[in-house]
Write a protein that binds this DNA or RNA. Structure first.
Length: 460
RNA sequence: GGCGACGUGGCCAAGUGGCAAGGCAAGGGUCUGCAAAACCCUCAUCAGGGGUUCAAAUCCCCUCGUCGCCUCCA
């Protein structure tokens, strides 16, 4: 079955065909590095990783570009020019550059812990100021800009199909406006270049044909994607929140400059819901991957959790849900481990079922169901293992490498009790054995009898 | 105020016109001295109402509920 993907631009599932086979250009909007990523952010990167792996599965040659936004997105279009980087700087006393570096490293560590494949190319906004200026000049030369007292703006009324991606109701937006227009001509207009405030020095500012300042929110993606992937490439991804503003404006910029709609496919990951509301950096409920680790979960439990829902549906985060994922993943890992070494060919039938699921717009929940069917099938263990090796190239759960944890040293007193109990069991003194198990439990250890002898485990 | 999405068993979640995947939990069972682990079995008519159809969780309408976007946001 050929790969089918949902395209937000056309609001339909389409057969994916590269523009220039077998090459595939993939651009995924990266983080703004002014704070840690929360697990809601990470859900989107996990989705993009599944996409990347499914493209690999289909033998495409993927060039994956991810940006790091290390220059201030403005707090709003109409404000005084304060941005999140400078704000973070004021909060912590570090320079904006140090903050960007710190959170970039933290972000990359999160990706690594989640088994997310690194992109082919990382690119930072501050390394591409010249490209951004060049793109703005191009837009200006084509007549889509105007200047106000605080910057150069994109005139969205000049594009007939502005807002098509988000199916924006421009008049409706006018009616229910919640934003301060400033000097903008249309509510949907946005800054391409902002001037530095006259009364103070910004940490991040550059010279430009329009004066000293810094780039607007959306221009970096148009500029950097064009540099690395060309004016029109295969797939552009991001979170669902990007549909109506960020990606809509990227498309506007690129249409104004290059006369293309930037990407052939537009794909969006949907939000992780925390109880009744989305997880937000402002407000409560900021859960990081680190938070899960502190609570004793393997980071891959979160990846597994994301696997249980479609990328195109919101997913409810609950601790019960995480527990369920932890238990489930543990069982799968143990089973795969106990199968021993792979032998023979992967089972063609199950591989075909798996492929049908993932090629159907990344239906990972169904792929996971196939995985369980396969795991519990009557195939020889070696074949199951060989088949799982193939599945895990997409699942990315590290199933082939996993080993049961070798228990840390058990305290001598516990060990002594365990040995005493073993002796009691050999002599069939059951009451004594149970009593000893109780004593061991009181010290915080569980003892389980296996054919190979007792297994002692520290209680969580 | 405008636009949009969603509402499936105790929980998470597939399925979008033809007898409701999967995981977790729960109950029962096999195994075990007893347990644990593992394995097996059982467990839903799809928010409510109306309509279209031979046939609807799946299409249309209404009601109720929840959420997202419109402001930096994955």
């Amino acid at each position: 079955m050929a790969l089918q993907l949902f395209d937000t631009y056309t609001r339909s599932v389409r057969t994916f065909e590269p523009l220039d086979p077998p090459k595939v250009g993939l651009y995924t909007c990266g983080p703004t590095v002014y704070d840690y990523a929360h697990i809601g952010n990470l859900r989107t990167y996990i989705f993009e990783d599944f996409l990347r792996r499914v493209l690999d599965w289909n033998h495409f040659d993927v060039k994956h570009v991810m940006n790091i936004t290390d220059v201030g997105h403005l707090v709003s279009d109409a404000d005084e020019g304060e941005d999140k980087m400078e704000k973070g700087s004021a909060r912590t006393g570090k320079t904006a550059w140090e903050i960007a570096e710190f959170y970039t490293l933290a972000f990359k560590q999160d990706l690594e812990r989640l088994n997310i494949l690194p992109p082919t190319i990382w690119c930072r906004a501050t390394d591409h100021i010249a490209d951004q200026i060049e793109t703005i000049r191009c837009i200006e030369a084509n007549g889509y800009t105007y200047q106000t007292s605080d910057g150069i703006y994109f005139d969205t009324s000049r594009l007939d199909d502005y807002g098509y991606l988000g199916r924006l109701d421009i008049e409706g937006l006018q009616a229910g406006m919640r934003i301060d227009m400033g000097e903008k001509r249309n509510p949907t207009d946005f800054a391409l270049w902002k001037f530095s405030p006259k009364d103070r020095q910004r940490q991040m500012e550059w010279d430009s044909p329009w004066g000293k300042g810094f780039p607007g929110w959306h221009i970096e993606c148009s500029a950097m994607s064009a540099r690395y992937l060309g004016k029109y490439f295969d797939i552009h991804c991001g979170g669902e929140d990007h549909i109506t503003v960020h990606h809509t404006n990227e498309i506007a910029q690129t249409e104004a400059c290059h006369h293309t709609r930037l990407a052939n496919f537009w794909m969006h990951g949907y939000f992780l819901q925390l109880g009744e509301e989305k997880m937000a950096k402002s407000g409560g409920g900021f859960i990081r991957l680190e938070t899960l680790i502190e609570r004793g979960y393997d980071p891959l439990v979160y990846r597994f959790f994301c696997l249980s829902a479609l990328y195109r549906a919101k997913l409810n985060f609950t601790w019960d849900g995480i527990d369920a994922a932890a238990t489930s993943l543990e069982r799968l890992r143990k089973a795969v481990y106990e199968w021993g070494a792979p032998s023979g060919e992967p089972d063609a039938g199950f591989v075909a079922q798996f492929e049908t699921a993932i090629n159907d717009d990344l239906n990972l929940p169904r792929a996971l169901a196939v995985t369980w069917d396969m795991a519990r099938s009557s195939l020889p263990a070696g074949v199951r293992k060989a088949t799982m090796a193939v599945f895990d190239t997409v699942l990315g759960l590290g199933l082939m490498e996993w080993k049961p944890k070798t228990e840390g040293a058990v305290p001598a007193d516990v060990q002594a009790l365990v040995e005493e109990r073993t002796k009691a069991r050999v002599e069939k003194r059951w009451a004594d054995a149970d009593k000893l198990r109780g004593q061991i439990a009181a010290l915080g250890y569980d003892v389980e009898d296996s054919p190979a002898g007792p297994v002692v485990k520290a209680r969580k």
